[in-house]
């Protein structure tokens, strides 16, 4: 019986997600349970926790300092002392890869915060206010999306210096386009709903309607997008660092470590292969969790 009412509710609720979630939580089928039932998502979460532990405790876990040089052991293959070998400057690849988590993950998270804040703001304003505000903001979004973003970032980071704060701001400010469009689409659908109509007829201000009635309904969407965005940003930072325009040596970053090993490939494959594997696993952990969240928060998307 309960199952039946849930299904009929799902049919009529359209694009708003929260009513479904509230209704379902009564019947033991919460997003959290759905998430934990998904082996892929759970694996992603464990992997993500692993990387967070690495980032937090790198100094404790790492056997050596990231820039400690053992000149006599240069290019030594992986062994019991140097788990992932030694690079061309005599530094322990394993320790450096651990310390990179302290650089790349915060860059990913902070850049995501910038990106999501801008994207959600623009999407909300554009979708809710419509008219000329919408036209201007959407043309701006078109422009951003017409730039091949990686190319744009390459240009800006090269020209404006390559410090980490600059990198975070640039990664954030160039990647909000898709998010703004998706949020706008949701808001366009939501603002025609009865509950918004009702709030308006009760005299709620635009500000109040946006924050109290529309925003909560797009929170699941934002959470999913934010998680996937961290993955994307970490990957892009890796690419920029690989090209030498991201995180600058000697600060360890997975991307620049792969680049350092690129020319040594024949003699010492471990210098680039291991850091790249860290980058890959860290990215996939965020992607798995984001994908799991999407299925858990919005079961209709899974079909």
């Amino acid at each position: 019986m309960t199952e039946k009412t849930t299904t009929s509710h799902r049919g009529t609720s359209g694009t708003s997600l929260l009513p479904i979630i509230r209704q379902r939580s009564a019947s033991r089928n919460t997003p959290l349970r759905r998430f934990l039932r998904n082996p892929r998502a759970v694996f992603g979460l464990l992997l993500l926790l692993f990387f967070i532990v690495i980032a937090l405790f790198a100094p404790t876990i790492a056997p050596f300092e990231p820039d400690e040089q053992f000149v006599n052991d240069r290019l030594l293959p992986p062994n019991s002392t140097y788990l992932m070998g030694v690079d061309g400057l005599g530094r322990d690849v394993f320790s450096r890869a651990l310390y990179s988590a302290q650089i790349s993950i915060p860059i990913g998270i902070f850049a995501m915060l910038v990106s999501i804040t801008v994207g959600v703001m623009i999407g909300l304003l554009s979708g809710y206010l419509g008219g000329w505000v919408d036209s201007i903001l959407m043309r701006l979004t078109d422009m951003l999306l017409a730039f091949p973003v990686f190319f744009l970032m390459l240009t800006i980071t090269t020209l404006f210096g390559r410090t980490i704060p600059v990198l975070i701001i640039i990664l954030g400010l160039t990647s909000w386009g898709v998010n703004a469009r998706v949020v706008r689409g949701q808001v366009l659908a939501l603002r025609e709903k009865e509950f918004v109509e009702a709030a308006r007829s009760l005299g709620a201000s635009n500000y109040g309607i946006i924050w109290r009635h529309i925003f909560p309904n797009i929170v699941p969407l934002i959470i999913v997008d934010a998680t996937l965005r961290v993955a994307l940003v970490i990957l892009i930072e890796g690419g920029l660092s690989f090209l030498g325009v991201g995180v600058q040596p000697p600060t360890p970053s997975w991307g620049s470590m792969v680049a350092e090993g690129g020319s040594l490939l024949r003699r010492a494959w471990w210098v680039s292969v291991f850091p790249g594997a860290f980058l890959f696993l860290c990215t996939i952990s965020f992607n798995l969790v984001g994908d799991g969240l999407r299925d858990a928060l919005d079961p209709r998307m899974k079909q």
Partner: peptide
């Protein structure tokens, strides 16, 4: 499920890294 997982792996692979791995395997 296998393909979905593979697709998630696909968007997570750093292209510059997999390129080097390919070079290592197929060239070196």
């Amino acid at each position: 499920n296998l393909f979905t997982t593979a697709a998630l792996a696909g968007i997570s692979i750093p292209s510059f890294w997999i390129a080097l791995v390919f070079v290592l395997i197929f060239t070196e």
